[in-house]
Amino acid sequence: MKSAKLLLRLSPLLIPYLILFCGGVFLTVGQSLGFLTPLPYTGGTFEAYTQLFSDPHFLASFLFSLQVALASALLSVTAGTLLAYWVWKLPQRLQTAAIVYKIPLILPHIAVAFVVLIFWSRSGIVASLAHSLGLIDAMQEFPNLLYSGWGLGMILAYSLKGTPFAMLLIMALLLRFDSRQIQAAYMLGASRLQTFFRVVLPRIAPAMQTGFIILFLYSFGAFDIPYLLSESRPGMLSVNVYNLYFKRDLARRPEAMAMLTFMFCFAVLLIVAYSKIVNRLEDAERKI
């Protein structure tokens, strides 16, 4: 009786979770195994997975996605940390003005992708600026940054969105940080660098970790920015799923679903590993 009441009170949370999330995952996993597919499925239960893992393109895509996500999350958190620290140390008046850093937060990802495209493509603003300044003879000489095979365009777009996000998280912790700790460290003879690494960084590390994991998982699986800025070979996993789902034979639906399932499992594994590490670290710091 008691638990029934509890379930009832939780229902606004539980019902959408059960229907949308669990239902979605169930359908995805089911279709990846050949059940509930739109066309009658003739292959074996794990055929989609076997196919997936034996495909070198998939592996390349996975590594590429990993690399883009890692680079953009690292870049965002590093830039976000340094900028947040810098803004925090500004005089109060300038700090209020520095609020402009939040603007990219309200821009949709797709808009940021366009900004990158407009600025950095071979026919973009930077290229034409370089041309009119005489740095390059023809627009075509501008390095092909966006499609260099390294995913630079995507990394740039993700970092533009991710940096202010990381700043936001870190600023929240810095606002509660006693600046006299920095004075104390200087008085005791620590250099600026030592003070930053030994006194400031440990205090904002939790926000940096959380920011990193959120940004990493987002850029690993998001679709909008890669759709605009991705390169085809290797492509990002999310774009591959999209192509498999919409542009290929309906019979390949299990493969698309297997890829989604794989991405989901990877994200879950990462979060589990992350919280284990954090728990162990916090055990040491709980006394603080």
Binding site: A184, G189, S191, R198
Partner: peptide, 20 residues
């Protein structure tokens, strides 16, 4: 006092020496 909250007593006392 403004001790460094993430360091032990030993860490706090040794801070100045470590900085040197």
């Amino acid at each position: 006092y403004v001790l460094f909250p993430g360091m032990t007593v030993r860490g706090n006392i040794g801070f100045g020496l470590k900085s040197r």
